[in-house]
Write a protein that binds this DNA or RNA. Structure first.
Length: 635
DNA sequence: CCCAGCTTAAACACTT
DNA sequence: GAAGTGTTTAAGCTGG
């Protein structure tokens, strides 16, 4: 019983972390681009249209203006594109804030539940509970106020003739999560409208047609909101706007990289003006986004957004900290350990999101991977990605389902696995391979492999006898691992070809096998160009799988990828063009060839990539090429 | 139910 | 002899 409680807590923790991630990501986007992301030009984002939509926004389908209403506006064409921009923009801001409120409210609910649970088990006094309850009430009120604000907003729009609500229509969008319009839809509509207008007007020479009253409205609602949400708004008025500084700095350093300018387009919120070069952009910036009411209003909105996000981030950080200390997580750095990105999450998302009813609380312990989602309304990114990644997962995801895992996946999740004692959803073979490929020489001694395991995965700091045995077993069993006699002893290398061949043959047409191919390819270090080419088509889904079930998840994934990529990826990306012969193996000669039970035709198979090179034994910087001195036997 | 893949456990041989 | 390394076998689990 205590166990269950703890598990619950762990899930909560993941939830928090994910929320944090989302918030941070949003913050990042907001700060860097100073842009209401939903308004970004859809034309330019055909590749990854969803990328520009903050996940949490997209998934919430906040209802500020119903699609019908929006359609109406658009059909009547009573608005100039600029007006529409402003409208859309404030929609975005409102949605964002509403969504945040709702999210927070939801979290409060969950926390309440959690504490209830705890108290049931621990028999604490219900003070905290009351606190949380009152807190919740407050949030409910805020939510209500938010909605009222939206009403006001809509009403003011009506008054200005910008929006006519017909009698039959649901006058006010008070039902949350009803048929709202998600930013992508807005974008689409926006695209349609503007594409009609564009050519003659885009250059944006006519800000005379701008309706300043609209601007006022756009700015007033969010600011009020923020006052409600944050009583200290005025003191925070200055906002920790370190971004402008950074902007100007980077602006000076890289004169052509301006946060408001990218891909030849002005990225000012709601503005899509095409600027040929940086100069014209500057010109445009000065003329179109000069210091006027509109710009300041937009800026204010943006500030509110960022402020909200920061606030949210701070709160979540705090809570995460508390949770972690409560759970005695042995994390050296409680700075929001990253969640596993797409592996488990996407699996369970695709698997469970559709069928598993979110409210079905008690899952049998026999299905440890089934998400225990306390209070979730539908498949939300946060919950589905984070809930069930913690706990004794015994299932293997690496080669099953449609879950390509890649070196990048492991690498990008490594922070998480480093700290959380979660069994990584990779097979031993995959991990061993990863360890070997990550090494500078593409070869490791057994002990180094052990070290890699313990270094990279908190889970493997226990039961060493078990998993070490498994490692050895795998090394011996799989033909893809080649033992090479070195001067200093034996090292293990990976035979990519063999690794790829592990589940081959019937590939043609069989989707499940293609999945396997994907997963295999995900692991493929680009040793062989031909091999790569042959796999090229499989690599395409590799980076989109996360978004197949839920596009927003893909967003999250890619977003976090972006965040993490820099540090982690270099090991593999560096060698992207390396040829087989280049791999610097020293004094290598395979001791013997393994007879793996499968594919007996192997004898003459493709030349083992790792057996080609001989090299002088200057392999001295052998082990622990990384940060910490690994304590060999943590056991 | 069967099969394939994976994990875990364990026995054994060899080397350091 | 102990510990580490490597090989092999077997059983159990899971998903297709």
């Amino acid at each position: 019983m205590e166990c269950g409680c703890l598990k619950e807590l762990e899930y909560k923790q993941s939830f928090q972390e994910k929320a944090l991630q989302v918030a941070r990501q949003l913050l990042l986007q907001q700060q860097q681009q100073q842009q209401v992301s939903g308004l970004k030009s859809p034309k330019r984002n055909d590749k990854q249209p969803a990328l520009q939509v903050p996940v949490s926004v997209a998934m919430m389908t906040p209802q500020v203006i119903t699609p019908q209403q929006m359609q109406q506006i658009l059909q009547q064409q009573v608005l100039s594109p600029q007006q529409l921009q402003v409208l859309l923009q404030q929609q975005q801001a409102l949605m964002l804030q509403q969504q945040q409120l709702q999210e927070f409210y939801k979290k409060q609910q969950e926390q309440l539940q959690l504490q209830l649970l705890q108290q049931q088990h621990a028999g604490k006094q219900p003070k905290e509970q009351q606190q949380v309850a009152t807190q919740q009430l407050a949030f409910q009120q805020q939510l209500l106020q938010m909605q009222q604000l939206q009403q006001q907003h809509l009403l003011s729009l009506q008054r200005q003739g910008l929006l006519t609500i017909q009698p039959g229509q649901p006058a006010l969008p008070l039902q949350p999560l009803a048929q709202g319009m998600i930013p992508t839809e807005l974008q689409q509509l926006w695209k349609e409208v503007t594409s009609a207008h564009t050519a003659e007007e885009t250059a944006g020479s006519n800000h005379s047609s701008l309706d300043l009253t609209t601007t006022c409205v756009s700015s007033s609602a969010p600011s009020k909101t923020s006052l409600i949400m944050n009583p200290h708004a005025s003191t925070n008025g200055q906002l920790s706007v370190h971004t402008p500084k950074r902007e100007s700095l980077s602006h000076e350093e890289h004169p052509h990289s301006h946060p408001l300018y990218g891909h030849g387009v002005c990225k000012w919120p709601g503005c899509e003006a095409v600027c040929e070069d940086f100069q014209s952009f500057l010109k445009h910036l000065n003329s179109e986004h000069a210091l006027d009411d509109r710009s300041t209003a937009q800026c204010r909105v943006q500030m509110q957004v960022v402020q909200q996000l920061e606030l949210q981030l701070a709160k979540d950080k705090e809570r995460l900290q508390a949770m972690m200390t409560h759970l005695h997580v042995k994390s050296t750095e409680p700075k929001a350990a990253p969640q596993p990105l797409n592996l488990v999450s996407s699996v369970t998302l695709s698997k469970s999101a559709s069928e598993a009813s979110p409210q079905s609380l008690p899952h049998t312990p026999t299905t440890p991977t089934a998400p225990i989602t306390p209070v979730t309304q539908g498949p939300s990114v946060i919950t589905t990605t984070s809930m069930h990644t913690v706990g004794p997962i015994r299932r293997r995801y690496s080669d099953k389902y449609n879950v390509p895992i890649s070196s990048a996946d492991i690498a990008q999740n490594q922070e998480f696995y480093k700290n959380a004692e979660v069994r990584p959803p990779f097979t031993y073979a995959s991990l061993i391979r990863q360890a070997i490929l990550e090494s500078p020489e593409k070869q490791l001694t057994l002990n180094e492999i052990y070290n890699w395991f313990t270094r990279m995965f908190a889970y493997f700091r226990r039961n060493a006898a078990t998993w070490k045995n498994a490692v050895r077993h795998n090394l011996s069993l799989h033909k893809c691992f080649v033992r090479v006699e070195n001067v200093k002893g034996a090292v293990w290398t990976v035979d990519e070809v063999e690794f790829q061949k592990r589940r081959p043959q019937k590939i043609s047409g069989n989707p499940s096998l293609i999945k396997n191919m994907q997963s295999s390819h995900a692991y493929c270090t680009p040793l062989n160009a031909a091999l790569q080419a042959s796999m090229a088509e499989n690599s395409i889904p590799l980076y989109t799988t996360a978004s197949m079930g839920n596009p927003t998840l893909g967003n999250l994934a890619s977003a976090i990828r972006e965040e993490l990529n820099g540090a982690m990826d270099h090991t593999n990306s560096n060698e992207s063009d390396s040829s087989p012969g280049r791999s610097p193996l020293q004094a290598v000669h395979p001791v013997h060839v393994k007879e793996e039970p499968l594919d007996p035709e192997e004898a003459e198979g493709p030349l083992s990539l790792v057996t080609t090179a001989n090299h002088s034994p200057d392999f001295d910087h052998d082990r622990d090429y990384e940060d910490e001195p690994v304590n060999e036997d943590m056991e």
